[in-house]
Amino acid sequence: MLVPGLLLFLVLFITPSMGAFYYAFTDLTDFNFFSAKYVGWENFKTLFDTDGSMLALKNTIIFTVVTTVFKITIGLGLAVLLNMKLRTTLYLRTVFFFPVILSTVAVALAFSAIYHPTTGLLNQFLRLLGLDFLAQNWITDRGLVMYSISAVEVWKWTGIGMVLFLAGLQSIPQDAYESATIDGANAWQQFRSITLPLLLPSIKSVFFLSMIGGLKVFDIVIALTNGGPGKASTTLNYMVYEDFSKHFYGEGTAASLLLFLLILVTVAILNLFISRKEVEL
């Protein structure tokens, strides 16, 4: 019964993935795969020799670090808050999770209006408070654009981390907190010595989901800035998209292979480090 599914997976996923390892070393420019010529490491040299590639790598790292840090910290803070017995807990859980189900394109269009330098709600609100000096060209300033995109990503996807953290918090036995209270531990000591260690599996899950999503970022970039202004918000996945749209399939495959290896190595190293810190109930 598993054979049809395995064959489908082999044909549609495994075979193309293995083929990518070969075509990354060819001059493939159309879909005539048999005419592609082996060019060695030329595609990879082209990637590293261009300033655009280095900028895309830098932007991807900035986006990944910023979004991962804030998704974890904000998601954990919301989870701790919503784990308390409040009358509005169910309502707040729905509100904070709601951005996750929204379309990325719709979110990008909304934030394009919010970020507008003159008519945008963000700058108008800052000017209303007398904070004119904080009003910025959020998505047209080359130095700010990646941070502005990161803020949208954090707003949209923090709800996922919140739910995972909330599930982790509710699985921690109350006996541990009761024993700590009897021993005289205050709220911060309980959080540091009980909550964080026992929540590490959830933190690990959110961390890897956020990091992998950050390294693969594409949809929010193309929907919000289309890689602009200029190339200021180009990322590695956006660069792959550009290469394929220009029929540079060899270079595009090389870039996607490089991105795959970057994710694989990063996840493997960090997984080894974090796994050593985990504790069991």
Rank of each mutant, 00 (worst) to 15 (best):
M1K: 13
L2K: 06
V3T: 04
P4N: 07
G5M: 07
L6Q: 03
L7S: 03
L8P: 01
M18R: 06
A20K: 02
F21V: 12
T26F: 00
T26N: 03
L28W: 07
F33R: 00
F33L: 09
A36D: 00
A36F: 00
K37D: 07
G40W: 04
W41E: 10
F44T: 07
T46F: 13
L47D: 05
D49Q: 14
T50F: 12
G52Y: 14
G52I: 12
G52V: 13
K58Q: 13
V65E: 09
T67F: 09
F70L: 13
F70I: 05
I74M: 06
I74K: 07
I74R: 08
G75N: 04
G75V: 01
L78G: 01
A79D: 02
L81E: 05
L81W: 03
L82S: 00
N83P: 01
M84F: 08
R87M: 11
R87P: 10
T88C: 09
L92R: 04
F98I: 11
P99A: 10
L102N: 11
S103W: 11
T104W: 15
V107M: 14
L109T: 13
A110R: 15
A110F: 14
F111M: 11
I114A: 15
Y115C: 07
G120R: 03
G130M: 02
F133N: 08
Q136Y: 08
W138A: 04
I149D: 07
V152Y: 02
E153T: 12
W155S: 04
L164G: 00
L166D: 01
A167M: 01
L169M: 01
D175N: 11
A180L: 05
T181D: 12
N186E: 13
A187V: 13
W188Q: 10
Q189C: 03
S193A: 14
T195P: 02
P197D: 07
L198I: 03
L199K: 06
K204W: 10
V206T: 01
V206F: 02
F207I: 04
F208A: 02
L209T: 03
S210A: 13
S210Q: 00
M211N: 03
M211K: 03
L215Y: 09
V217T: 10
F218D: 06
A223W: 11
L224I: 11
L224M: 14
T225R: 13
P229C: 10
K231T: 15
T234I: 09
T235S: 15
V240D: 08
V240W: 08
V240R: 01
Y241C: 04
D243A: 15
F244N: 09
H247I: 06
Y249K: 03
Y249E: 00
E251K: 07
S256A: 14
L257A: 02
F260G: 12
I263C: 08
I263V: 08
T266S: 13
A268P: 01
L270F: 13
L272W: 13
L272T: 14
I274G: 09
I274F: 15
S275W: 06
K277R: 14
K277V: 09
L281W: 11
